[in-house]
Amino acid sequence: MNNFTIGKYLPLDSFVHKLDPRTKIIMLLLIMGAVFIKSGWIGYFIILGFIALSLILSKIKISYVLNAFKPLIMMMVFLIVINVLVIKEGNLIFSYGFIKIYDKAILDTLYISVRLLIMISASTILTMSSNPLDLTVGIEKLLKPLGRFNFPYEDVAMMISIALRFIPTIIEETQKIMNAQRSRGVDYEEGKIKEKIQAVLSLIVPLFSTSLNMAEDLASAMEARGYIPQEPRTRYRDLKYNIKDYIVFLIGVLLVVLLVWVSYYAI
């Protein structure tokens, strides 16, 4: 259970926590888009400043956000190394055997790293400051216009909320099965590759069968409590925009306008 804390909801009492989840999702999308406006380092500083401000307003400790990067470090290092080695533009600044590094490569890689930093920290702030249930309702409401094109937005939202509900149960189940198999002598930590594969199979097969049972039981329970897909139902958790959300939207629009202005006139 403990290794599942990345981006996990932190119930705090803050300005950002009290925002409507839809506002936060839209702001995240806005930032994701804004990252691609070619506004140079000035632009990135503006966006980073905005993220820093959201972090302060959310009362989330910066170390929590940094933790979210941990599992991604390997991937990022890999990306950076590949980038530095592959891009062959600009002036050659370092050469050792077949390794040739150009100044443009370093600059481009820096840009990409900053973009990743921005996107990951922005999404982490979103998930840490929003109750997953409200987030699901927010996603459902934002997807609602797609319903006109027969997009099953209600089903998608139901699927997300059920997945969220069952993640802890499945982790618990996994641990139970692992303990049961350990007591029968299965070793999950050491052994040859062949033994390791066998160990993993001894975990996956029962896990798969429990999950299927779980799904079947759950479907019965839902049906028995009157759930019929695609039939109208009310929602216990309802969302409402209030004045704070409008202010944040306004700031978001200003941010984009500023970045576009920078991209045209300041560089």
Binding site: I162, G226, T234, Y236
Partner: peptide, 28 residues
């Protein structure tokens, strides 16, 4: 049903009780 986990539909106690009410279209 028999299995306590597999019939817990909502993500919290109140959400679980609310699930059936939502299906009955009760006013939130």
């Amino acid at each position: 049903f028999q299995n306590p986990d597999n019939q817990f539909i909502g993500s919290s106690v109140k959400d679980d009780i609310a699930f059936g009410l939502e299906n009955k279209c009760i006013n939130p």
